[in-house]
Design a protein around this nucleic acid. Structure first.
Lengths: 379, 379
DNA sequence: TTCCACGAGTAAACCGGTTTTTGTTCGCGA
DNA sequence: TCGCGAACAAAAACCGGTTTACTCGTGGAA
């Protein structure tokens, strides 16, 4: 009768297979229950029946719990293999009160999302940890504060995920508080800033990279070193700008002019023109990402300047293109993949109630290429 | 007693809250069940009790089914709002036999994953459709054929997702057949190639873009037009190469030299050197993506050539940086976001057993910038 | 010899929803 | 007044696992 029930269900579920007239644009795999219900997808009950044991015995074996003899165990494993049975993730999630999934909500304008080298690398890193641990990654892209908030609420209320990665921290960000309120575990993914209250973020020491850049330019004789940063609403922008200011001060230099841009190429070009229009134009510019740096370089060349002879340029990220622009871009590289890995490890520990192992991330690297050089004699 | 049961469960579940000594690197939200179980997260039973109706009534209201009086309905909605109750996604998934999630498995080397402008845009497009429909996107990044196969099997057997996006189609790809076997619905995401058997893929007409590029160069007087493509194992690479060949033939030109590269900057540069080393070096090169094109341009400039005076260059993708390199890159742009949207719509229809609405995608655009110009007089 | 601990295994409750079945009321026509 | 279908609502089965409580032998210690 089990079969009967199921059959009925499917028969009414798939509403009489609309015949998809003439080349519908899609691959139609017959959703479930082919023709005669012949491949009904085995359940734990089927396995138990075939192995002549109870459901619990099967469950015990598949969860590494004792209490099952060697002989029965073998029968169970055979039966499961024969039926190609794997525990259904949905049923498992329900009974264990665990989704076995982690969430990542990204709020960003599509254009930026498609340039930023951070996301793909971070995700790749996260995945490399997750897949080994049996967790899935649920990604959501949102475009406004409302939808962002709704997305977190939905993750929490509907229990779709067991924890989330919190990136792109903003100054005075409410999300940590809201997540605690919702009871959803999280890790902060951000530069290693001295945080206020609350837990420390997992991140790399961006600031060290920027300071290296400033010292490098100083050593080349530059004194008027400008900075093109991102919006100060973001913690990582603020950290990079702060590092630039601090290092300039430490070298006894007046922090040069600074422009706030938005990480896009257009903004980088515009900012560069503004800086070069100044009476005391800078001889070097440090940008908050490579995209702005490359666009800035291009803008400078358009004005007839030579890079690096007339203007030195430093980026941030080391995108794969950085070595291939003319001149090759001097920049700061972070190992984002490791960063993602570490974040995932910590979040999993947290979700499972374990003590997170201490994390160790490689330091940021300063990559010297052709876009920086000695300051022009005249300057 | 309901409460009692639950409480017990949580008490033993959270193993006595390890006190996270000294600045653990993570945001610990007390997993569930704070202190006294005061915020136990409401269930449908609680809502029903508060509204003095049965669970079914609540379920009916939240699923838009009739059979509930106006008065009871109001009480139910009030109660749900008061308790901030949303149906638990896991329980829902189980009883409806629907995960309400779609999967996307990406096999790619990390480096490429981080450059390719396709993924972020595609995902952004997919999301913009999904979020409105209440579906989640489960992403998985794999690095080998084995892990890829395992990933699909896991998605299907564990019923983690209701359908998948199938991208990066390879020649003779087994995945469609395997997915049909597994009973998992899918859409093919790829260039609009004349497919063999099986369902048509959803995609843009890459070939048109490449043909436009060839004609453009021909009009500028170029006759030796080379092509740097991706591995022919990929359908999209093959389609682009084929378009180049066809158009050359149509214009009465011998298809120039062609090199197979792997979409990375390094490969683009290497391929370019090879082509320029030829006795009859090409006067123009069409690349299969912008990254290779820009790297190629850089390689040419390193050899003392001027772009476009000595060599014209065409890319593919129109990455955000394309307008900002020197000279700005002539390339082909696809509206990947729309593409993602359409794919998601079709997949959802498929999963829900509906007839997919016909899709309409914008044509690819040919973007003329500074990297192409009239052929050198001497050539 | 008796008792108990323990290993092996099972039945049933449970997770939190959805869906089917069953049961009342009530209004209305005959 | 009786009968019957519509409208509403409660009860129960079900989704496919996990987990708890309990049974049944068996061997070793007292």
């Amino acid at each position: 009768m089990q079969l009967n029930r199921t059959k009925r269900r499917y028969d009414s579920g798939v509403q009489n297979e609309p015949s998809l007239p003439g080349g519908a644009n899609a691959g139609a795999a017959p959703a479930r229950g082919k023709r005669k219900g012949e491949t009904r997808k085995a359940t734990i009950g089927d396995v138990a029946a075939m192995a002549r044991v109870s459901k619990s015995a099967v469950s015990f074996v598949f969860n590494g719990r004792g209490g099952v003899g060697e002989e029965a165990r073998a029968r169970i494993l055979d039966a499961a293999a024969a039926l190609n049975w794997k525990p259904d993730a949905r049923a498992r999630a329900l009974s264990r009160s665990r989704a076995q999934a982690l969430g990542y909500i990204v709020r960003r304008e599509p254009e930026l999302f498609s340039t930023d080298p951070f996301f793909p690398q971070f995700i790749a890193g996260v995945e490399s940890t997750l897949s080994g641990e049996g967790y899935a990654l649920v990604l959501q892209v949102v475009d406004s504060e409302e939808t962002e908030r709704a997305a977190y609420a939905s993750f929490a209320n509907e229990a779709r995920v067991d924890g989330v990665f919190l990136g792109d921290l903003r100054i005075g960000d409410q999300r940590p508080a809201e997540l605690s309120e919702l009871g959803l575990p999280y890790v902060l993914v951000g530069p290693d800033a001295p945080s206020g209250a609350g837990p420390d973020p997992i991140g790399l020491d961006d600031a060290a990279g920027v300071r290296r850049a400033v010292r490098h330019l100083h050593a080349l004789g530059h004194r008027r070193i400008a900075h093109v940063g991102g919006s100060d609403r973001y913690v990582h922008s603020a950290v990079r700008r702060r590092a630039w200011e601090d290092e300039m001060a430490e070298l006894g230099l007046e922090p040069g002019p600074t422009v706030i841009a938005d990480f896009t190429g257009a903004a980088g070009a515009k900012a560069t023109h503004e800086l070069l229009d100044l009476a005391a134009a800078p001889t070097a510019i440090i940008y908050a990402n490579d995209l702005m740096a490359i666009a800035g370089m291009s803008a400078a060349i358009d004005r007839g300047l030579r890079v690096p002879a007339d203007l030195s340029v430093v980026g941030f990220d080391d995108i794969p293109l950085a070595p291939y622009v003319v001149p090759p871009l001097t920049t700061v590289r972070q190992d984002v993949i490791q960063w993602g890995r570490a974040s995932a490890r910590v979040l999993i520990s947290l979700v499972e109630g374990r003590e997170p192992a201490p994390i160790e991330l490689p330091p940021v690297e300063f990559i010297m290429r052709g876009s920086t050089g000695p300051v022009r004699a005249g300057a």
